[in-house]
Amino acid sequence: MAEGIRIDNLVKTYGQGDTAVHALRGVNMSVAKGEVVGLIGPSGSGKSTLLKCLGAVIEPTSGRMTIGDRVIYDDGWKVGDLRALRRDLIGFIFQAPYLIPFLDVTDNVALLPMLAGKPNAVARKEARDLLEALDVAHRAAAMPSQLSGGEQQRVAIARALVNRPPVILADEPTAPLDGVRALAVVDMLNTMARQFDTAIIIVTHDEKIIPTFRRLYNIRDGVTIEELQLEASPARRT
């Protein structure tokens, strides 16, 4: 499978000299198009720092990051507009849905392509198509406060996918959900990854979903170790 995102020898150091904190010490990681992988590790291991680097929120100290065949970082950013990079190439799903409370479901999803310059009618049509695919189209005119927790997270997934980014970063997306809803969200992400050829990284502490990953990266002390889970549940394989 073609690579969706690749990280080579990524380093992030805060501060200098005796007070330097080495958050990432040479991370290596790759996720194929259409693949979902898990990223686990104890608190303070570097997960949040790695996710911020991948999402172009903070700048690494050194290393290389590639999305598809495009180098986005190589000992310095190789793109001029980081906001456009985040908008066009990376989708984000968080522990909380962070839906805009005064916009209905359709406009919450359509807002990003509208900001990217798509006509409103086109953006709303794409939003409705995704809501249909995620089985929440019947709530298209509802306000976020009228949705259940599971419905809100489906809308958040639609928002992350609407610009068809090649990479999605999901930070504890199942944390507020019970077991059934958590597994349903993972199933949706696997389906969307295959359907849209998207590479998805899920940062999680959720023991309910860890067995569903075929591949895991375990990060400890700023270094990743890849783990292959051959016994992942057949009904839930990525």
Rank of each mutant, 00 (worst) to 15 (best):
M1R: 12
D8H: 12
V11Q: 03
V11C: 00
Q16W: 05
Q16N: 14
D18K: 15
A23C: 07
L24R: 12
G26D: 08
V27R: 10
N28L: 06
N28C: 13
V31H: 13
I40M: 13
G46N: 06
S48Y: 03
S48D: 01
T49V: 12
L51Y: 03
L54K: 09
V57A: 07
P60R: 07
T61R: 08
G63P: 06
G63E: 02
D74V: 05
D74Y: 00
G76I: 00
G76Y: 05
V79A: 07
G80K: 14
G80P: 03
L82R: 15
L85A: 11
I90C: 07
F92S: 13
I93R: 13
I93V: 15
F94V: 04
P97H: 04
P97C: 05
L103Q: 11
N108W: 12
N108L: 12
V109F: 10
L112W: 00
M114T: 11
M114I: 14
K118N: 10
P119Y: 04
V122N: 12
R124K: 15
L134G: 04
L134C: 09
D135P: 02
R139T: 05
A140D: 08
A141H: 13
A142R: 06
Q146V: 00
L147C: 05
S148F: 01
G149P: 04
Q152A: 14
V155T: 07
I157N: 06
A158Q: 06
L161M: 15
V167I: 12
L169G: 01
D171K: 11
P173H: 08
A175E: 05
P176H: 00
V185G: 03
T191L: 03
T191C: 05
F196M: 05
T198N: 06
K208C: 06
F213R: 08
F213P: 07
L216T: 10
I219N: 07
D221R: 13
V223Y: 07
V223H: 10
E227C: 00
E227I: 13
E227D: 00
A232M: 02
A232C: 13
S233K: 10
T238G: 04
